[in-house]
């Protein structure tokens, strides 16, 4: 078996006096689709935010593609990673946010094109074609020159996914991407994720409250509870065969 693309090794995270994560150990293989479920406040989002380098772990190691993300070697010692080190690894990771975070001063096509052109220094024409293709794929090929303020929440979130995909990440992170949406707009966003999960070979980590959806597309489900991974396995293992009481109780609340 090949080396996992992401490894968490005894990762802890505290915000002030509050311990959010208490020792996370986790392997994510390339192309693996991982769903993270659990009660709010259990630290789900913090896991992927650390991977996206938006939060620094308090202790422990996160290894991405064989390289330590938050630490680097300097004069034979492991020291805190600098921005240059983070940038090198971050290029392989993409993220879709709960509140979309589109750039309001750019059209949706510009939103998709800006990073490949300025960050990856790719040719403008090639990036334009790829961006249009990607926006077509998420069903927004007719809105290229609209601004984010002219779109619905569901449309904005689909643009955000296209924007992340155009960067061709090896790992895609989804942070509760449907929880800021009106209920009738959730379906269109989930359809796009399903399409990506089925057809693209990148690793995906979804933090979500869409339980049935997560269980449907995920190769692996993690149940996070009070800062630890309380249960993990395939969807059927976790859902049908787990004896974890907290998990049963949690699922029960969603299955009413």
């Amino acid at each position: 078996m090949t080396e996992p693309i992401v490894k968490f090794q005894d990762v802890h995270k505290s915000f002030g006096d509050t311990q959010v994560l208490k020792g996370i150990n986790l392997d994510i293989n390339s192309a693996e689709k991982v769903a993270v479920i659990g009660p709010s406040g259990s630290g789900k989002t913090t896991i992927i935010r650390m991977l996206m380098t938006l939060e620094e772990p308090t202790s422990g190691d996160i290894i991405v593609g064989g390289t330590n993300l938050w630490k680097m070697e300097k004069k034979g010692q492991m020291v805190r990673a600098n921005e240059k080190h983070l940038r090198e690894i971050r290029g392989d990771i993409g993220m879709v946010f709960q509140h979309f975070n589109l750039f309001p001063h750019m059209t949706i096509l510009e939103n998709c094109m800006t990073a490949p052109i300025h960050v990856k220094k790719e040719a403008k024409e090639e990036v334009r074609d790829r961006s249009i293709q990607m926006l077509d794929r998420v069903g927004l090929g007719d809105k290229l020159n609209n601004y984010p303020s002219q779109l619905s929440g569901g449309q904005k979130q689909r643009v955000a996914m296209a924007r992340a995909l155009v960067m061709r990440p090896k790992i895609m992170l989804f942070d509760e991407v449907t929880s800021a949406l009106d209920p009738e707009l959730v379906g269109e966003v989930l359809e796009v994720i399903r399409d990506i999960a089925k057809n693209d070979d990148m690793a995906m980590v979804l933090v979500t409250h869409e339980m049935d959806f997560a269980l449907d597309i995920a190769d692996k489900v993690l149940f996070l509870d009070e800062g630890v991974i309380a249960e993990q396995g395939t969807a059927s293992q976790v859902i049908e065969h787990s004896t974890n009481e907290r998990l049963q109780e949690f699922l029960h609340r969603f299955r009413k």
Partner: peptide
């Protein structure tokens, strides 16, 4: 705050982040 995080997630350099995302807004 989300604009800063999106710039980071898209791996902008500090200079590009200011030039393309923060200052224009």
């Amino acid at each position: 705050k989300g604009q800063w995080e999106a710039s980071r997630a898209l791996n902008f350099t500090t200079i590009d982040k200011w030039k393309k995302v923060i200052l224009p807004q």
